[in-house]
């Protein structure tokens, strides 16, 4: 077999007819169906561009408007609208998260926590409310006040306030202290450890 370069084809007379055949340049008019296909391609390209721009613009708006709204840079009506849309959109999601958190919260245990203040017996509370009602009638104080005082908490100053030198309580806690004294008196010595402070206050006060 003779050695032959790739370029030999261009000079070898043996391939002259094929060279001539390959390089014949008849240029007919472009057929109509190809022309229509080109126009279709142009239309598709324009549609693709519009869709891309539309999606890009929508994405920008979706990012920019909540940000501007959070920075309070939007006019009031637009801001109101954006917040409304934001709430509407995030409500189902936040609802889902809320449910999830509730489910994840551990159930309360039956063991009482010694650090917490003891719960008030409902019967005691009823008595307190009845007593405070009579007291409030005497003092003409609002009826809601003693009821509120009947549910003491550890932070309640009225239960731990002490009389001043003259034996009077502070002006602010006068009504409450009176009712508290009555509570301690009426409850008697049943709650020895818990109400000891109250009863002593009551004794001192009177």
């Amino acid at each position: 077999m003779n050695s032959m370069n790739n370029d030999d084809f261009n000079t070898d007379p043996l391939f002259a007819p094929l060279r001539h055949f390959a390089s014949q340049g008849d240029s007919p008019e472009m057929p109509l169906n190809i022309r229509e296909a080109f126009r279709d391609g142009k239309k598709n390209k324009r549609r693709r561009t519009l869709v891309f721009r539309g999606l890009f613009g929508a994405g920008l708006i979706a990012i920019a408007f909540p940000t501007l709204s959070a920075a309070k840079l939007l006019p009031a009506p637009v801001q109101h609208l954006v917040e409304h849309i934001n709430k509407t959109l995030t409500a189902p999601v936040s609802g889902l998260f809320g449910k999830h958190d509730t489910a994840a919260t551990p159930a309360p245990t039956a063991t009482p926590d010694p650090t917490n203040t003891p719960a008030i017996d409902p019967e005691d509370a009823a008595e307190v409310s009845a007593t405070s009602a009579s007291t409030s009638d005497d003092d003409q104080a609002p009826t809601a006040q003693p009821v509120a005082a009947a549910q003491p908490s550890a932070d309640d100053d009225s239960l731990t306030s002490y009389p001043d030198g003259d034996g009077n309580y502070d002006d602010e806690s006068n009504g409450q202290s009176a009712s508290t004294q009555q509570v301690s008196d009426n409850s008697g010595g049943g709650d020895d450890g818990d109400d000891s402070g109250d009863s002593s206050q009551g004794d001192d006060g009177h």
Partner: peptide, 14 residues
């Protein structure tokens, strides 16, 4: 050939 040119014409923008 016609099929090829139609494909080319349609997709040249890509």
């Amino acid at each position: 050939l016609a099929e090829s040119w139609i494909s080319i014409a349609r997709d040249i923008s890509k």
